[in-house]
Design a protein around this nucleic acid. Structure first.
Lengths: 215, 215
DNA sequence: CGGAAGATCGGGTTATCCCCGATTGTTTCC
DNA sequence: GGAAACAATCGGGGATAACCCGATCTTCCG
């Protein structure tokens, strides 16, 4: 019995590409595809696929909300979200909505295929250990945030990083923290050394991902 | 003789999907694929493909600038841009950069295939009637985003902003764009003046919001 | 106690920032 | 068709900030 897959993605050519790749797998088949979240839900109810391959950004019902409703309303259906966003909050939202996996679009198809097989091996409702499973799963595409800011950076360094990511100058930060400019510079150097990030831009992105500042 | 195609797209799984679809066509073959604009240029120079299938948003050199340089530097190469942006100014910029076609990602693969064959039939430089052909193609989803980068910043300034937001230094950007450090500095000043943003951190956030770079 | 880690600062070198101006080519507009 | 505006390119030079080295002091813990 092949793994029955439903494709939900708003770009036709990407759906076709995925379908073409999936159909090369002997143990998988695409039972339907759709371009929006609402019909994804309807098709899932009607066809009860084993796996729904879901995009986040779709017109109408978005991927996260569609995931929530499919997981609740279609027994046995696992949802794998394929997204271009590596933002942690997207990931958290998606998993909270009941998705079994969260993969980035710059993963290889082989990773997707093994993710599909993997969620089939676990039961239909692997939600109890989603946290561990999935966080572990996307450890690589999210480029090693095993060591989150809290683990690696000291409290003072986090203060400095946050202010940097908010666009404050070194001098500004120094006066805000009531220390000398040199101290702030040292903190910044330590931050950059620890994270192996050597530009304000990348540091800002890191801080955003870690929730130290917002867009 | 098959049509020799170079794939440039920053998402691995989309590249694989496109490759899979293209390889089903008897008259086409994928000679190489890459995830960034700069190596697309290098590969195009080295392999002289018939068609470069280009994504707009790519790290390093973006698709528009890569298109410009490929059209100028690789005789006989036609560039077809595959984008998710239906914004008019993106289209205009892309075509001005010398692309032969501008297709949206929600087109069917069949449209892409016929576009590839079509640009092969016209000469290597069919730039004269690009306008009509392509504008007609994506006539449906045109929306004006007045407040985006496109309205305010010039193409070159967007290039610079993107590279800045990716953490490149001024010197680095200068060598990437083949201009002097002074030129990049001027662009940066213009960007900051136009946007009234005066820190790399805030500029990075702006670039992320505007889709010029990702987290 | 000894030693690691955190927070604080300084000196000197290098790079960047920011004001100015200047040239060339293209687009636009009356 | 010519003026005007814009875009892209570069340079000088002084102020500023970042970068790399090291150094002190405290705290905390085995």
């Amino acid at each position: 019995m092949k793994i029955r897959i439903l494709l939900a993605n708003d770009h036709a050519i990407i759906r076709e590409g995925l379908r073409s790749l999936i159909e090369r797998q002997a143990d998988m088949e695409v039972v339907a595809e759709t371009e929006n979240g609402r019909s994804a839900l309807q098709l899932a109810r009607k066809l009860t696929p084993d796996v729904v391959l879901m995009d986040i950004s779709m017109p109408g019902l978005n991927g996260i909300e569609a995931t929530r409703q499919i997981v609740e309303g279609v027994p046995g259906a696992r949802v794998i979200v394929l997204s271009m966003h590596s933002d942690k909050r997207f990931v958290a939202e998606t998993l909270k909505a009941g998705a079994s996996r969260y993969l980035l679009k710059d993963c290889a198809f082989e990773e997707l295929a093994s993710a599909i097989r993997s969620v089939m091996e676990s039961g239909p409702y692997p939600r109890t250990r989603i946290g561990k499973t999935v966080i572990g799963k996307h450890a690589h595409p999210l480029k090693q945030d095993e060591h989150t800011v809290i683990a690696v950076l000291t409290p003072r360094e986090r203060d400095v990083l946050q202010l940097m990511a908010e666009g404050k100058t070194t001098r500004n930060i120094a006066s805000l923290l009531h220390v000398s400019v040199k101290t702030v510079e040292t903190h910044r150097q330590h931050i950059m050394a620890k994270l192996d990030i050597h530009s304000i831009a990348e540091l800002t992105k890191y801080a955003i991902r870690e929730g130290l500042t917002s867009l």
